[in-house]
Design a protein around this nucleic acid. Structure first.
Lengths: 119, 119, 119, 119
DNA sequence: GTGGTCTAGACCACA
DNA sequence: GTGGTCTAGACCACA
């Protein structure tokens, strides 16, 4: 796995793990039905506690990004349309809030996005 | 003050207060050198702990948005150019990160910003 | 609180707690915006670990039955329509599955429900 | 066999197998004294662990649904009255519990069963 | 081997 | 005071 924990990050460790995995999975780096690293092995790799990884995986399962088979492990979800759509909606909402604040500060949206988006 | 606390907001109370005040001040709703509501009165108004308002004000002072005069209270900064510029840079950086994630998920930037920005 | 843990129950403790609380709340025993017992106090009362109660409360928050205010505690949700509706749908689905199995075994639905429902 | 495992099902694999087989047998799809698929072949067919199928068969034997002849295999019970009656009682009890919860939530039983039972 | 639950206890941010 | 995170470690069911 290509995950890197950052102790300066304000997000808790379990969230860095779930966010990182979700990103990799939704980006297609991990294929559907492929097994995730086991809770224990990922904990070893990241030098963290298995409970912390478990919490991250539980969140991913809740989001529909992975599924758990008892006694066998965790696997990348077969259908990622829903979680991908959900994430897209989240990104849109976050950007909308930031742009709204810019409006209130009198900052022009196009100026704020200068160089970030092709017109 | 036109502040409204939202307990479903994931941000802690003190941050909602400092974010809200900064927004109002940078948007020009509160004029430079005007006095801020006292810590006590704002705590009363928001039904929250004075320590919490204190923490919010400390953050605003750190950002240069307000200044404190011992024994007299807190006042809106006379020169808001620096904090306004800093906030603008923050907004840009946050949006950039969100757009980068969208790229990685294969979401087109223009599609993501659909209806949020005039072309 | 009127909660009783049952160690013979196959459900894990945290689920007994969340199920029990949800039942009490949705039944109207606890009023909206009333504070839940603190994580620590409920753990004491049930002679269980605070982490276990926390897990139960996290589940209730996810279901929209309670909301958490950092540093203040957990409170009964103000609007219980959604979780009540969700629970009703769950009950319907469970009953439907049981009735479907009865059909397959050749058991008449009306006979199975004998004495449980007024015609 | 017409069994289908569902990894999204919350029941463990062995229980899905025993539930599924019991359903087929009690519904008359498999005739009394007919041989069950061997543990090995069913494990192959379901791509699961033989231990898991073994556990499912043990459960079915305990319930009187099948019987085991050492060295020869597992066979559908000759007399299914007892297990059928037991299952019916189980279904009744489960439904009764769900209806009781509905009562406590103020949901009308007839409304909950809407469309599921002829009056 | 796998994940799931639970405990005891520490430490933190927040109000 | 409150909840949130994390660790270390035990024990269990399941495959």
């Amino acid at each position: 796995m290509l995950l890197q924990l950052d102790y300066k990050d304000s997000r808790p460790i379990y969230e860095q793990i779930s966010d990182g995995c979700r990103k990799l999975i939704l980006a297609g780096v991990l294929a559907p039905d492929e097994p995730m690293p086991s809770v224990r092995s990922m904990a070893m790799e990241l030098s963290t506690n298995p409970n912390t990884v478990q919490k991250a995986y539980a969140e991913l399962e809740r989001q529909g990004v992975i599924y758990t088979v008892k006694g066998r492990g965790n696997f990348v979800s077969g259908d990622l349309k829903a979680p991908l759509g959900a994430r897209k909606a989240e990104l849109r909402e976050k950007i909308a809030m930031l742009l709204k604040e810019a409006d209130e500060l009198g900052i022009d949206r196009n100026e704020l996005l200068e160089g970030m988006v092709k017109k």
